[in-house]
């Protein structure tokens, strides 16, 4: 089962970082060592406000299918998860860096009214 194919109502993205270790000398001089060539740890937070419960259920089912925070997966295309983003599609993704997303925390479902819920999903990009 792929990640649900819905356009979010709000989205935040942190682009992560390359594996860098920083050393600072007593005189203030800084030395940085790059330990890898791939950026990782991207954080993608998706909010799906006021969606029908049947759609909200897809996230719960998908979370179960990928065994919670264990397995990685790719998220939807430009028309869905990245809907409304008019920049380069790779910019919001993890695949270009060799990473894939996994759940950082369980999906949060807030019941709004009978049959309607809001879902927040927090994903993190890992190698």
């Amino acid at each position: 089962m792929p990640f649900p194919d819905l356009v979010p109502t709000a989205r935040t993205f942190e682009s992560g970082d390359y594996p860098v270790k920083t050393f600072k000398a007593q005189n203030g001089a800084e030395t940085r060592i790059l330990y890898g060539s791939n950026r990782t740890n991207m954080k993608l937070s998706l909010t799906y406000a006021n969606i029908f419960d049947a759609d909200a259920e897809q996230f719960l089912d998908h979370y179960d299918e990928v065994q919670g925070t264990f397995q990685t997966f790719s998220v939807g295309g430009t028309d869905t998860t990245r809907g409304g983003w008019e920049g380069n599609k790779d910019a919001l993704g993890a695949q270009s860096q060799g990473s894939r997303y996994r759940y950082e925390s369980p999906p949060q479902v807030v019941q709004v009214r009978p049959g309607v819920s809001s879902v927040t999903v927090n994903l993190i990009g890992v190698l």
Binding site: V7, T9, D79, W85, V112
Partner: peptide, 9 residues
């Protein structure tokens, strides 16, 4: 009312 406008609209 509840808004259901997505980021693509």
């Amino acid at each position: 009312l509840l808004s259901i406008k997505t980021l693509a609209e």
